[in-house]
Design a protein around this nucleic acid. Sequence first.
DNA 1: CGATGCATAAACACCA
DNA 2: TTGGTGTTTATGCATC
Length: 628
Amino acid sequence: MSSHKLENDTGSYSENEENKEEMGLKNQRKTEPEADIQSNGRLESRISKLTVPSHEMRIVEDYSNKKNAERHSGEIQAYAKFAGSTWTYYVKKIRLILGREPANQSAKGKEEDSEVVDMNFGPSKVVSRKHAVVEYNMQDQAWNCTVHGRNGVKVDGKLYKPGETVKLSSGSILDVAGLQMMFVLPNASEQNIPEEKAGESNEEAEKSEEFSATVENSVYDNRKPPYSYSVMIAQAILSSPDCMMTLSNIYNWISTHYPYYRTTKSGWQNSIRHNLSLNKAFRKVPRKSGEQGKGMKWSIEPEFREEFIAKTKKTPYKKTPPPFLCTPPFTLKREHSDPEHTSPPIPTPVRNQSPSTPKREGSPLTEETPSESKDREGGSYKTPTRAVLSDIIASQDYSPDPSTISQPKNAASASPAATAAYSTSSPAPFWKYVAVPNPHDWPHVGSYDTISPYRNPLNNHMVYSQMPQPSPRKIDEQMHDLQGVDLANGFEGISSWRESMVQKLRTANSGSSAPASPLGASTSPANPPRPWGSISEPISNHSAEVENKQQPESSVGTGTDNDHAVRAILDASVSMEKQKNVQQTTEFPQTGQTAQPALGTTAQASVEEHPSPQRYMQASNADVRSNI
DNA sequence: CGATGCATAAACACCA
DNA sequence: TTGGTGTTTATGCATC
Ligand SMILES: [Mg+2]
């Protein structure tokens, strides 16, 4: 049954246009981006090419143009702005601190000692807490940047070390830990902005390794990335110093690094969640006590780490697969996590993970497909053929690599070739100067316009920045808000308690036996059926179950076929038991109730045998989908 | 052809 | 009531 809601929000069902116009502009690359792209493109064009390091950078996410557009409409009053490829920070104070916000800036803290960070370039430690100070000098009537951070700051290609001060002019390009941004004053106009300096810019960034800063793969490439969701999720998580990331930040990371997801409907986020839940490689861990924010943090099971990294490396991308920041897997793992207990959450008796690796047959995330692949449509990567405007813009790093690219399919979803519609991809907001009376020596205040009819924000709909104009102050507040303090402070309730219990169990369990088989998955078929009947004892019961689910299998099985047989049931932990009380807590069922398989779903026989079918990354029982 | 992988769409459950 | 999070099911397509 189940009366699917079917249509409803599908309002925009229109897409079907397909216009399969084969348009033959196959090889266009290098062409100067059409002028039509943006009326005042030049500046924007430059801004859109500023680099973004692959590691997480709060400011990029917190002040993404998208969020800015949602935050305020119309114009924004500010002294200046720092424009990055996909983000913009408006300067509303005459002195601000660029740095890394302390990890635990929870509510308790307190402002005594250190000053508040205005522009948060963390969490990577490459950036000092107080990396630099940008302030307006009344005397000189100019903005200056004084460096404090050990790694310095680059301004227009020149590296400034701690203690040095450099004057900022409109158009100056700063580089903090690989993140480039252009300082722009309100009265600036394109004419005032110096043309791109020769040497500097991209190549510059490339060679500067003082920062791990690798130039990210085109920020202006709107093609569908050649990575599967799981791989992108892993990249995001691994880009974080502590190897953990919230759902929300995963979204941000992905859309920041793969522009395709900035102009696509929200379905992908659903997919991300879906993937996090089903893929065994991802596991949620509670936030550190005191840490505010929503949801759990997601981490990667150590056994899968290498796989993901490998996956990322062998990609069609010509250059720069993102470096993984979160380092030594285990070390890091240890430190974070676990709120009240000192027990490391991630048990994993360490598998030596010899580089020998993987094998595991066609298992884990296979992604590259050698096949000749016909050219995909919808412009996912590859398709040197049918390029679209966005491709032109992106063109630059195409991988000439032979066919190899391919990339799964897109299936039905008729990915609307995005054509023109997408080309706009929303670069930095376009702004205009609006003089404002200004007394004394204070810097001038100008108005910036956020993007007008902003593309499509997160979810489907389009956003027209109109709405009543918030008062300047108001805006300011909002910005600060964003910065970190979320009034709805933390709470952590039972969830975390449960979580920790679970962790403990896991630890214990794995410690005792847990085969190290990397994806292997042991599992004993003998797993107790445990229908959704009543589940008597919650935990204890489970622990037992869990415990007995394993079965050596030691290293690599290679046994392909065997492999299949083996993977399966396992994981008892999951209980299908709909999520009564489980939900945000964890996979352990707990108490009563049982749930009945939802809806019609024609019986899928075996179901009752094991918890949930359809699991990714190894494990997962035989395919249950008996196509009707 | 069947088992797998991966992408999508959806229905739901929870919770602040 | 609602939006952000998480879990699960169900399907379709492609590949091995
Ligand atoms: Mg998972």
